[in-house]
Simulated assay, not measured.
Amino acid sequence: MSGPPILSNDGIGAAGAPALPTAGRVRRRLGLGLLGLVALFALLGPWLVGIDPRVQALDQSLQPPGAAHWLGTDVLGRSVLARLAHAARLSLGLALLAAVSAAMPGVLLGMLAAWRGGAADRALVLLADAVMPLPGLLLVLLLAAVVPGSALALYLGLSLSLWVEYFRVSRAAARPVLAGDAVQASRLLGFGLPYVLRRHLLPALAPVLGTLLAFSAAQAVLALAALGFIGVGLQPPTPELGLMMTEFLPFYDEAPWLLGAPVALLMLLVLGMMLIAREESGE
């Protein structure tokens, strides 16, 4: 009786069967699965629940989870499940939008600085160095104070605070690629930046930018929840994770299940993004 197949260096068994998934792939699949479940809940939850999260029913205040309300009701008799579904859509959508909006100018400016060098590089680095010492959460707080309760102000603040990291990472990663033989040959043959960007830069930058996108999206989710928790983010009756925690905290002794719902959803969101980021970074 033969023993188990011996795995070769490329991860393929001696009999030609593929090897078991590595720990990194398992983490990535788990992270994608968690984010997929949260995304489905955010997209389909409001439609499936079919309850307006702003409708109050004071005669059903602080109802425990049951058939009518799977996650119970808050102090105003509103469905926690309905509010959680809308909060998931708001937090996930706004965080991804802010991360992508920060990535586009940050990556383009970083590659431009690495490509042009000289005065353009120094000017862009000076701009990034001037913005970086300002704490990102403080910048969001300033914009939120100017326009209280505005989702647009939170989005702009998060985008403005996140673009610097994309600029620094893309500039640092692009410089050795641009100095390589392949790019030098392409430039000698007359190919411009669009060709070099498509054939050389983007394939080399994709892994590190994927990691940074996951990290920045997780950072944006936590920032939104923190601002809502301290009362300077989105305002009632808007369903938002941090705001829901603030509303539920005074009733923890009487209805402890209320606080667990937004906390669990926030943990799943951040955990899914961090698992993807760890796998992309090769840890």
Rank of each mutant, 00 (worst) to 15 (best):
M1Y: 13
S2Y: 07
S2T: 12
S8D: 15
N9M: 13
D10A: 06
L20F: 03
L20T: 03
T22D: 11
V26A: 14
R29Y: 13
L32W: 13
G33A: 13
L34R: 13
F41G: 02
G45R: 12
G45E: 12
L48M: 10
G50T: 09
P53Y: 08
Q56F: 02
A57R: 15
D59N: 13
D59L: 12
P65F: 03
H69S: 00
H69Y: 10
G72A: 01
D74I: 02
R78K: 04
L81M: 13
L81H: 08
A82N: 11
L84G: 05
L84P: 06
A88K: 11
A88T: 07
A102S: 11
A103L: 14
P105F: 08
G106K: 12
L108K: 04
L108W: 13
L109K: 05
L109P: 04
W115C: 00
R116H: 08
G117T: 04
G118R: 15
A123F: 06
V125N: 12
D129R: 09
L134Q: 07
L137P: 04
L138C: 08
V140H: 06
L142T: 07
A144W: 09
V146G: 07
V147I: 10
G149V: 03
S150N: 09
L156K: 04
G157L: 10
L158M: 15
S159I: 00
L160C: 12
L162M: 14
V164H: 13
V164R: 13
F167S: 05
S170G: 06
R171C: 03
A179Q: 14
A179R: 14
G190Q: 11
L193V: 11
Y195M: 12
Y195K: 12
Y195R: 15
V196T: 11
R198I: 00
R199Y: 09
H200M: 00
L201T: 01
L205E: 08
L209V: 07
L209Y: 10
A214Q: 13
A217V: 13
A218Q: 05
V221M: 15
L222Y: 05
L222E: 12
A223I: 02
L224D: 03
A226Q: 09
L227I: 03
G231T: 07
V232F: 10
G233P: 05
Q235I: 07
T238C: 06
E240W: 08
L243V: 00
L243D: 00
L243M: 07
M245D: 04
F248I: 03
F248W: 12
L249R: 14
Y252C: 03
P256T: 01
G260F: 15
P262R: 08
V263I: 14
L266C: 05
M267K: 01
V270F: 01
G272L: 11
G272W: 10
L275V: 01
L275C: 06
